[in-house]
Simulated scan of single mutants.
Amino acid sequence: MTVTVRDFRPDDAEAVVRVLREAIPPLLTTAEAQVWEAEHTPEAARHRVLVAEADGEVVGRCQTGLAHESPTPGNAYVNTYVRPDRRGRGVGTALVEAAEARLRGLGAARAYSWVLGDGRSLAYAGRRGYAPRRSAHFLRLDLTAPLPPLPEVPPGVELVPCTVFEDDPRPVFELDAAVTADEPSDVGAELDDYTDWLETTWGHPCQSRELATLAVVDGRPVAFSAVATDGVSRMSSAMTGTLREYRGRGLASLAKTATLHKARAAGLREAFTGNDAGNAPMLAVNRRFGYEICATEVRHLRELG
Rank of each mutant, 00 (worst) to 15 (best):
M1Q: 06
V3M: 02
V3H: 00
D7F: 04
D7L: 15
D7N: 14
F8T: 12
P10N: 11
D11W: 13
A13T: 12
A15S: 12
V16M: 11
R18K: 09
R21V: 01
A23L: 03
P25A: 02
P26E: 04
L27F: 09
W36N: 06
E37H: 08
E39S: 05
E39Q: 13
T41K: 12
E43K: 13
R48H: 02
V51F: 04
D55S: 13
V59N: 08
V59G: 08
T64P: 04
L66C: 03
A67F: 00
E69W: 15
Y77R: 06
Y77Q: 10
N79T: 11
T80I: 09
T80L: 10
V82H: 03
R83H: 15
P84M: 00
R89P: 04
V91W: 06
R102I: 07
R102D: 09
R102M: 05
L103W: 12
R104D: 08
G105W: 09
A108D: 08
A109N: 13
G117N: 03
G119Q: 03
R120A: 15
L122V: 13
Y124R: 14
A125M: 07
G129M: 09
A131E: 15
P132R: 12
R134C: 10
S135T: 13
A136T: 12
A136L: 13
H137M: 08
H137K: 06
L141R: 14
L141A: 11
L143M: 07
A145P: 06
P146R: 08
P149D: 14
P149Y: 10
P151H: 07
P155H: 08
G156A: 06
G156H: 09
G156V: 04
V164A: 14
F165G: 05
D167L: 09
D168I: 06
F173D: 10
F173Q: 11
F173C: 08
E174R: 15
E174I: 02
A177I: 00
A177D: 00
V179G: 11
T180V: 15
D182I: 00
E183A: 15
D186E: 15
V187Q: 14
D193S: 08
Y194P: 06
Y194S: 07
T195D: 15
E199F: 02
W202T: 04
S208Y: 05
E210A: 13
L211E: 07
A215H: 07
A226Q: 14
D230G: 00
R234V: 03
S237H: 11
M239T: 01
M239S: 05
M239F: 00
G241D: 02
G241E: 02
Y246V: 00
Y246D: 07
R247Y: 05
G248C: 01
S253K: 11
K256L: 06
T257N: 07
T257F: 07
A258Q: 14
A258K: 14
H261I: 02
H261L: 09
K262F: 03
A265P: 10
A265E: 15
A266L: 01
T273K: 07
G274W: 13
N275P: 03
N279T: 02
N279G: 03
M282A: 01
A284E: 12
V285Y: 05
V285A: 01
R288S: 13
F289N: 01
G290P: 09
C294H: 04
E297R: 10
H300K: 09
R302L: 12
E303A: 14
E303C: 10
